[in-house]
Simulated scan of single mutants.
Amino acid sequence: MEFPEEVLRAVGAGAVWSSDHEGLSGDVWKAGSSYVKRAGVDERERLLWLGEHFEMPSIKAFADGWLVLANVGAPSLASADPLVAATVMGTTLRSLHALPIDSCPFDARVAVVLEKARRNVEAGLVDPDDFDDDNLGATPSELLERLVATAPPDEDLVVAHGDFCPPNVLHRPDGSTVLIDVSRLGVSDRHRDLALAHRELGEEAAAAFDRAYGLTPRPERLAWYRLLDEFF
């Protein structure tokens, strides 16, 4: 893997590189005290904006589609006890969703995400082998038709993370949290986040999540936003 000079300078000449770390894929590397990941301008802009309201990993460099982030020194909730993870996630999400939507410059309303889903299908970026079990056997085009036909007529808008799941919430021993992987952040129905949290946590932990968040989700909205996630 070749990295831009700006990235290498930000990481440091003596950094040890590894992709064998919790929650990291082939496009995310740990390098010394930094993380290096594939990312577009969208994620960089969202990191900067959300950093005005929440603690976020600081950006050390951004060049040629590679983002260098400082290691905040906190593990993700992916390996935490599910009930602990659920409670922390519910409390954290309640704070995120309390941000005024007028302050957020990023749009992830239904019309916007439907158009992005359509472009992803047309570009061949939606893999039917990765669909949830109840959608296996459908083609991306068939699933898109279902998504459009069942789109909600109204939205309960908040500033949504867009990929709110345990690996994307870092949790320190003092109880503070740091959000990562915010490339989908934008003004959206709150159920976009609730749906993914429910899917990842399971039934028992999801109940604890709902108590911490302070709201009982609408099942039909959870189902639609889970369907939406198949396209991203």
Rank of each mutant, 00 (worst) to 15 (best):
T91L: 14
T92F: 04
L96V: 12
A98I: 09
P100M: 08
I101V: 15
P105E: 03
A108R: 15
V113C: 00
E115L: 11
E115C: 01
R119Q: 14
N120D: 13
V121Q: 02
V121M: 05
E122I: 01
E122Q: 15
G124I: 05
L125G: 00
V126T: 05
V126H: 02
D127M: 03
D127A: 03
P128K: 06
F131V: 10
D133F: 01
N135I: 00
L136Y: 00
A138R: 14
E142Y: 03
E142I: 01
E142V: 02
L144I: 01
E145G: 04
E145D: 15
L147I: 05
A149G: 13
A151G: 09
P153W: 07
E155N: 12
V159R: 06
G162P: 07
G162H: 06
D163W: 11
D163R: 09
F164R: 08
P166L: 13
V169K: 06
S176N: 12
S176T: 15
T177Q: 06
V178L: 08
I180D: 03
D181A: 03
R184A: 09
L185H: 04
L185K: 06
G186C: 11
V187L: 12
V187T: 11
R190K: 14
R190V: 10
R199G: 12
E200M: 15
L201G: 05
G202K: 09
E203G: 07
A205E: 07
A205H: 04
A205L: 11
A208G: 04
F209C: 05
D210W: 10
Y213Q: 11
G214A: 09
G214Y: 09
G214Q: 12
R218V: 15
